[in-house]
């Protein structure tokens, strides 16, 4: 099976108002996406994620480098690419607020050249699937943010694209909707579609994606199957604990077998090298009256914070 998306040395720069300087949004990205894969694209604000999605969905031209979607070049054959990709950009924009959800979808169905009957069926099916059937005939301006986001998803799926680009699709969704969204992405994958997902939600990426790609400052930092992600940490064992005694807490990082200690969700997480160290630390903590301690797995968030964390706020 050939790769669904093939990106080679992709560069995109933006010229800013003051012509002197150029912003490098993508600085030479090489990446391959396989068939029926859910790829998570992660990275801090301004990393170049949206720029990449825009290029792959033919909204934007690359400055240099090549990208092929289903074997077709994005620059020379955008038309073939367009018929096969669906794209959903985050945020509320891109809908016609005055007309109903169904009318919005019907409009895009016509633009994607679906015949009338197929269009009608597809609209109803998608509205049902997105949980919007009850409100389908109300104007979109009366929708909540999450409902608009779901309508965007329906719009992106209207022509049954082989590849779906989703740029922060769960922004504004409530937990139930976000859970349904995850189920939807899994279904789409089952149907043989490839999903390219941009998100800031590490738990979501970890739960959904077969592979995660991390970009930072327009460069690929990591590209790895999600289940192997822990490889990127030297210390792959963790112990989570809550300790109210500052004296005890101060001692933990000093222990020879502890790599580091980081605050985590109201408590702390100690990172360790060897599985045997886990038992040693647990015993050490219990002896000092710290009873809320348990072993845990390093998550994608740990990897992310390790690779990006030190300067996340300095865009």
């Amino acid at each position: 099976m050939p790769a669904v998306v093939e990106i080679r040395e992709l560069v995109r720069t933006y010229r800013t108002r003051r012509k002197a300087e150029e912003t490098v949004a993508l600085g030479g990205v090489t990446l391959t996406v396989d068939d029926s894969e859910v790829l998570g694209l992660l990275g801090p604000n301004g990393a170049g994620k949206t720029t990449l999605v825009k290029i792959l969905s033919t909204v934007l031209l690359p400055t240099s480098g090549t990208a092929r979607v289903l074997g077709k070049d994005l620059v020379s054959a955008p038309q073939t690419v367009r018929e096969n990709v669906g794209v959903v950009f985050g945020g509320e924009r891109g809908l016609y607020p005055r007309i109903s959800a169904r009318q919005n979808l019907a409009f895009w169905a016509a633009l994607y050249r679906l015949d009338r009957r197929t269009a009608q069926n597809r609209c109803s099916e998608l509205l049902e699937r997105m949980g919007l059937a009850d409100r389908a005939d109300e104007p979109v301006e009366t929708f909540s943010r999450g409902m608009k986001q779901r309508l965007h998803l329906a719009r992106g799926l209207i022509h049954g694209p082989r590849i779906l680009f989703l740029d922060e699709p769960t922004t504004g969704m409530d937990p139930v909707a976000a859970r349904d969204f995850r189920a939807l992405v899994r279904e789409l994958r089952q149907e043989g579609r490839t999903v390219f997902l941009t998100t800031h939600d590490m738990a979501e990426a970890e739960a959904l994606c077969d592979r995660v790609t991390l970009i930072d400052h327009g460069r690929l930092v990591l590209d790895e199957p999600t289940r192997h992600i822990g490889r990127y940490l030297d210390a792959r064992e963790c112990v989570d604990f809550t300790c109210d005694d500052p004296a005890v807490l101060a001692q933990v990082p000093e222990l020879a077998f502890v790599e580091s200690v980081e605050p985590r969700d109201g408590g702390h997480r100690a990172l360790l090298r060897e599985p045997a160290d886990v038992a040693r630390l647990l015993v050490w903590l219990i002896e000092r009256g710290v009873l809320s301690a348990r072993r845990s797995e390093p998550t994608l968030e740990d990897v992310y914070l390790r690779l990006i964390g030190t300067r996340a706020m300095s865009v």
Partner: peptide, 8 residues
């Protein structure tokens, strides 16, 4: 942009 990338 969405109109621009529609096949029609």
């Amino acid at each position: 942009p969405l109109l621009a990338i529609a096949p029609t």
